[in-house]
Every structure is written in structure tokens, then in C-alpha cells.
């Protein structure tokens, strides 16, 4: 995967103003702490997610990467006893401020889950659900267009165009996951969060999803949590390594995988633990 931006990129730095014009901070976290009851799950995390890039979160199980991902669209609100402190922004707006509507926020920050979870409805209704509840389509033909474009973008349209009224649960695992991605992009989000989107898929389906992620980067900003380091290396531009609730290292993916600064990162990447 070619990435010409890598050479002149400035590694992790809090200040937004010093970014080159090509790299704009889409989402930022400043001193984020998350507690589940008495457990301190995330400790003082600072990071930036740049627009039109894929940011990968890696780290051993229980390191807090999924927790951070779920904080980014406030999915953690649903979990009893979860407290979040610090600041998280989307385009400079604090997403935890009182006047943010969570439902609206989640329309702007879509999410794709570990296990493909299409609704037990038709393929069409799966994709049309988001636009419908947000009133994105005035007429039936508008809705048709949104659905078809979304399916097109995920490369699913050719495979399912003659059975849009069939249940989405009847597709193969990889197709289901692409359907879920189509469902997420149907509401035109700014950011798509992916929580280990390929962990339940076979290598061929995984390759298709990775390809898709790279294509989607053009229009969306993507954050992906993965256990698969090759995947992180393949699809992402920037990688954040978490360990025991702390952000250990965040840099250009190439940098992290070829010459990590931290010994923990080095240990994880070379497979000494994790």
C-alpha cells in the first residue's frame, strides 16, 4: 500500500496548528481517563486522529484500545458504572459536552463491530434503516439512491443487487460485515470506528475488507482496533500502541513497526508478548 505522506509527516505532537495543511485533526483526545467501577481502564490518553487516514489501535487484550474506541462515539454511556474524564473532540467540538446529542453524534461517528451484526431484516432495510431514522431521504427514490450508493461503495452491490429483499442474515460472514459497513456509511458519517472488524472472518473476506477500508479512507476518517499486527501494518497510516490502559507510543505506522521507540512496543510487535 503506497503512502506518500509518510516521509514528511510530523510524528505525535499535541499542537494542531503545526500540522501541514494535508493533515487535519479530525478527532482528538486530551488526558482521557476511563473507569469501570474501581478499575482504571484508560490512563491519561492523549492522541489525535487525522482526517482521511486510517488510525490503528493495537495492544494486548485488556489494554484499553476498545474502551477508547467506544468512548469516541460514546458507546460507553450504555455501560453501567463507566466514568469518563478528560476531553474528546470531533472537529474541535467537545463530544462529552452537555449540549451534544448522543444520537446525533453517533450518526456522525459510525461504528462497525467485531461480529457482523446485520439486523434480521432485508438487505435493503439494513442499509436504509439509518437514513430513515435520521430523515436523510425525502422520497423513495432518494432512499434507493442512498442504499445503492452505500452498497456500491462497499462492493456489495454486484453480489446482492438481485436479492435486496432477502434477509441480510443470509449472507456470508464477509458479506455481512460489508453490509454492516454499508449500513454505517449510509448515514454519511465523518468517522467510522471499527472494532476488530475482521476477527470473525476468513483470510479472503479479511482481504476484501482491508481493501475496502483503504478505499473508504478517501471519504471518511477511520479508526480501527485490531489484534492482527499485519493488518494494522497493511491498512493504517498511523498506529497507536496501548498497554495496561496507557498509550505507550503513537506514530506513523511504518515508524512503529520498523523502529519503535518504546521497548514494550518492540516486545509486542516482535511477538514476545501479547
Amino acid at each position: 500500500m503506497a503512502n506518500t505522506q509518510l516521509q514528511d509527516a510530523d510524528p505525535r505532537d499535541g499542537a494542531v496548528s503545526s500540522r501541514p495543511a494535508a493533515r487535519r485533526t479530525k478527532m482528538a483526545a486530551r488526558d482521557v481517563n476511563v473507569f469501570y467501577g474501581d478499575t482504571h481502564a484508560l490512563k491519561g490518553v492523549d492522541l489525535d486522529v487525522y482526517e482521511h487516514e486510517v488510525t490503528a489501535f493495537i495492544g494486548p487484550s485488556g489494554c484499553g484500545k476498545s474502551t477508547l474506541l467506544r468512548c469516541l462515539n460514546r458507546m460507553n454511556d450504555m455501560i453501567e458504572g463507566c466514568r469518563v474524564s478528560g476531553e474528546m473532540t470531533l472537529d474541535g467540538r467537545d463530544i462529552y459536552s452537555r449540549d451534544i446529542d448522543v444520537v446525533q453524534l453517533r450518526a456522525e461517528i459510525g461504528m462497525v463491530f467485531q461480529k457482523p451484526n446485520p439486523f434480521p431484516k432485508s438487505i435493503y432495510d439494513n442499509v436504509a434503516y439509518g437514513p430513515r431514522i435520521h430523515g436523510l431521504a425525502r422520497t423513495k427514490s432518494d432512499l434507493d439512491e442512498i442504499v445503492l450508493t452505500s452498497l456500491e461503495k462497499t462492493g456489495l452491490l454486484d453480489e446482492v443487487h438481485d436479492r435486496l429483499d432477502q434477509p441480510g442474515t443470509g449472507l456470508s460472514g464477509g458479506q455481512q460485515q460489508r453490509l454492516c459497513i454499508a449500513r454505517a456509511i449510509a448515514v454519511s458519517p465523518k468517522v467510522i470506528l471499527m472494532d476488530e472488524p475482521c476477527s470473525a472472518l476468513d483470510p479472503i473476506a479479511t482481504a476484501r475488507i482491508e481493501e475496502l477500508i483503504d478505499e473508504l479512507r478517501e471519504n471518511y476518517t477511520i479508526v480501527i482496533v485490531t489484534h492482527n499486527m499485519q493488518q494494522a501494518a497493511r491498512v493504517s497510516q498511523r498506529t497507536a500502541f496501548f498497554h495496561l490502559g496507557s498509550l505507550i507510543e503513537m506514530d506513523e505506522t511504518e515508524q512503529v513497526f520498523t523502529s519503535p521507540k518504546n521497548e514494550h512496543t518492540q516486545g509486542y510487535i516482535t511477538g514476545r508478548y501479547g
Binding site: N73, M75, V103, R106, G110, M111, N117, P118, F119
Partner: peptide, 27 residues
């Protein structure tokens, strides 16, 4: 009703009442 359905609906920006009336109750 599997929690993944609830998450899926929340993920596309359904409110908790929409999650219940559109997905959980029918299932």
C-alpha cells in the same frame, strides 16, 4: 435478543427508544 442487535442500532444513531421499538420488541 442478542446485545449485538442493540449495539448495531445504537451504532447507526438510533435512540434508545428506537432501539427498543424498532429492533428489540419485534424480535
Amino acid at each position: 435478543v442478542p446485545p449485538s442487535i442493540r449495539e448495531a442500532a445504537l451504532g447507526v444513531g438510533a435512540s434508545s427508544i428506537q432501539v427498543v421499538t424498532h429492533h428489540v420488541l419485534p424480535l
